[in-house]
Simulated assay, not measured.
Amino acid sequence: MEIVIATIILTGVAVLLLGIKIFFVKGGRFPNTHIHNNESMRQRGITCARDQEFYK
Rank of each mutant, 00 (worst) to 15 (best):
17 L>A: 13
30 F>M: 09
41 M>P: 01
32 N>C: 01
27 G>H: 05
12 G>E: 03
50 R>C: 08
20 I>N: 00
28 G>W: 03
48 C>L: 03
24 F>I: 03
23 F>D: 06
21 K>F: 05
32 N>Y: 00
46 I>F: 06
1 M>E: 10
8 I>R: 06
1 M>I: 11
8 I>F: 10
48 C>H: 06
6 A>N: 11
50 R>E: 11
6 A>K: 13
25 V>L: 13
19 G>Q: 08
48 C>A: 10
56 K>S: 14
1 M>R: 12
51 D>S: 10
27 G>R: 02
42 R>A: 15
11 T>D: 05
52 Q>A: 08
24 F>Q: 00
17 L>E: 06
45 G>Y: 05
5 I>Q: 13
50 R>V: 10
1 M>N: 08
56 K>R: 15
9 I>M: 05
52 Q>R: 15
4 V>P: 02
24 F>K: 05
29 R>V: 07
33 T>Y: 05
18 L>I: 12
9 I>W: 04
35 I>F: 02
42 R>P: 02
41 M>G: 02
23 F>K: 04
19 G>R: 01
29 R>D: 00
6 A>Q: 13
44 R>Q: 14
16 L>S: 06
17 L>F: 14
47 T>C: 00
13 V>C: 05
28 G>I: 04
56 K>I: 08
27 G>E: 03
52 Q>D: 11
23 F>S: 10
46 I>K: 11
2 E>C: 10
21 K>N: 13
24 F>W: 11
38 N>M: 08
55 Y>N: 14
24 F>Y: 14
15 V>F: 12
21 K>R: 15
48 C>E: 11
13 V>T: 12
48 C>W: 09
40 S>E: 15
21 K>T: 00
10 L>Q: 05
26 K>W: 04
37 N>M: 03
6 A>T: 11
28 G>C: 04
12 G>R: 01
46 I>M: 08
3 I>R: 15
9 I>F: 05
47 T>H: 09
48 C>N: 12
36 H>D: 10
12 G>H: 03
29 R>K: 15
8 I>G: 06
32 N>I: 02
17 L>M: 13
45 G>P: 07
15 V>R: 01
32 N>P: 01
34 H>F: 09
34 H>Y: 08
3 I>T: 12
17 L>I: 15
46 I>Q: 04
